[in-house]
Design a protein around this nucleic acid. Structure first.
Lengths: 100, 100
DNA sequence: ACATTATATCGAAATTTCGCGATATAGTGA
DNA sequence: TCACTATATCGCGAAATTTCGATATAATGT
């Protein structure tokens, strides 16, 4: 866990909001039937909600992924992103330990 | 508590380190006798420890102060900075609530 | 008033981040 | 193979951040 990378990734309100949205799948349109077993949300849905360009959201998700805060899973043409709960908790614990 | 401002202030390893150092007064040279009653550490001591220029540290402390994470108290020519424990806890709670 | 000390602020150059459109890559289906 | 869709990456100009030296401000002591 690179705390510097994680804080940088979180140093943006939209990226934080995405993490919040990802807590609840119902913040996004329903998954296609063939994706009903896949956990996570595709880039297009996140983009729609965040109202930023496709390339920006793709870059944001890569940042969050490289920080370890989300996981990605490819299924066909889609990439599904979901929170990495363990990493998020680990980050929160680290920050808490460091600053408390 | 402006969470955005706080995260920005913390998005720098030296500023985080300063907050950590400030947990324990003994991380710095002893206070002058006439300051023994004052809580907090003067800019010069922080600068010495961080090994950055005086203006940089002054700017850092202003950033941390504007984010609410530290408090400043002027005594004569000196400004003493100390952690704002309540604000720090509030920030940690907020981030935890938001991201957990 | 003047020199000295501590801190704050200013202005600037270097670097980083932001967000986009264009384009590349990869998978799907006719 | 050829179009189409979803995502990733590239290149860029704009904006923000970093860090500094120079300078301003403020307090102290002679």
């Amino acid at each position: 866990m690179d705390i510097d990378k994680a804080i940088s990734a979180l140093n943006n309100p939209v990226r934080r909001q995405i993490l919040i949205w990802l807590k609840d799948r119902s913040n996004f349109p329903p998954a296609l039937p063939e994706h009903s077993e896949v956990s996570g949300v595709c880039v297009a849905y996140i983009q729609e909600k965040a109202e930023l360009s496709q390339s920006t959201i793709s870059t944001y998700m890569k940042l969050l992924k490289d920080a370890g805060l989300v996981e990605a899973e490819r299924h066909g043409q889609w990439t599904f992103y979901r929170r990495n709960e363990k990493a998020i908790q680990q980050f929160l614990n680290l920050v808490d330990q460091e600053l408390s």
